[in-house]
Amino acid sequence: MHILGNQALRSRLQEALRTSPPAPAYLFLGPRGVGKALTATWMAARLLCSGPEPPCGLCPACRKVHSGNHPDVLRIDRVEGKASVGIDDVREGISAVQLRPYEGGYRFWIFSEAERLTGEAQSALLKTLEEPPGHLVLILVAGGEDALLPTVTSRCRILRFGPVDVQAVADSLLEHGVSPERAAVAARISSGSPGLALELVGTGEIWDLRESALDLASGLPGSQTWQALEVAASLEALKTGSSDPKADLTRVLDNLMSWFRDALCLSVGGDEGLLVNVDRLDTLRVLASSSSPRSLDRALQAILEAFDHLHRNVQPRFLLQRLCLELSRVGA
């Protein structure tokens, strides 16, 4: 299994597993898409492998782990359409992990989005963390610690994952057959997240949403009120088919943020190597030359406010109308 980035961290983990038994519980922290869940799978394969140099990737145990069919690896993933992982899911898992391993020397319990565990679910998990069965290795994968109880995090060995070098992400995309221009843009948009970069180029709908959002954003500065409201309606209509009602609007706002942030960078004489939307450099130069840094900064503040409104469940139509009216004033 090839996992891009964070190699030093995995080397330390490999050495620790070679010289001593695993800890009862781990907390893998870091941005989305940087290999935390893949490392959890790698770790399970490493400890369940029956080959001479684990993880060999070829033995029955490794193949079962990688295919998601190993009886000693229990995964708790968020159900599509549900915002959280509840206490019933945890209670069911507690009963399962008390059993002795079926095939290997350990049983793994992996939570792919641990920050989505409800408070009740985390409290139910505490008993297992305090008195874990000797065969259990529990791995919590999360973007941050804020949503986790201190009593949970304090009982875990914490490994912190960082972003991957942007050029390394772009090179990886080239190996997947992505065009150089699209690979460069996707790597920058992902901020060093191979998983997010692959998601962006692998799903035409997400890339198309980005293209449409930037086309609409480029026409906002200096537009009339009625034009800004039309843009707001068009932005609201951008969809990828996601079951999460906030996911597409978040993507729209992310693209608007990167667009006006790039323009601000150019307007103050920043390095073009820092830009995200390098495939639209000419249009960005025009926007930067015709807009003051102050108005571009106001645009970014308006987008941040829109993110806040989204998290507070403000109606998308109202949120976008207000935002687009503010963005129409860029350059004024």
Rank of each mutant, 00 (worst) to 15 (best):
N6T: 07
A8T: 05
R12L: 14
R12C: 09
T19S: 15
T19N: 11
S20I: 04
P21S: 11
A23L: 14
P24I: 13
V34S: 05
W42N: 02
W42F: 14
M43E: 05
R46W: 14
R46Y: 15
L47A: 01
G51M: 11
G51T: 09
G51R: 12
P52N: 03
P54M: 07
P54D: 01
C56S: 13
H70Y: 13
D77M: 10
G81P: 03
A83W: 12
R91Y: 01
E92C: 02
A96I: 10
V97E: 12
Y106K: 06
F108V: 01
E113Y: 10
E120A: 15
E120P: 10
L125A: 13
E130F: 02
P133M: 13
H135W: 07
L136F: 00
V137S: 06
I139N: 03
A147R: 15
L149E: 07
L159E: 09
F161M: 11
P163G: 06
D171F: 02
D171Q: 10
E175S: 10
V185N: 04
S190P: 07
S190L: 04
W207S: 08
D208V: 03
L216V: 03
L220I: 07
Q224D: 09
Q227F: 12
A228D: 07
K239M: 03
T240L: 06
S243E: 08
V252G: 00
N255C: 12
N255V: 07
L256T: 00
D262W: 12
L266D: 04
V278R: 13
L281Q: 04
S289H: 05
S291G: 01
H309P: 00
L310T: 05
F318G: 06
L325N: 07
S328C: 09
R329G: 05
G331K: 09
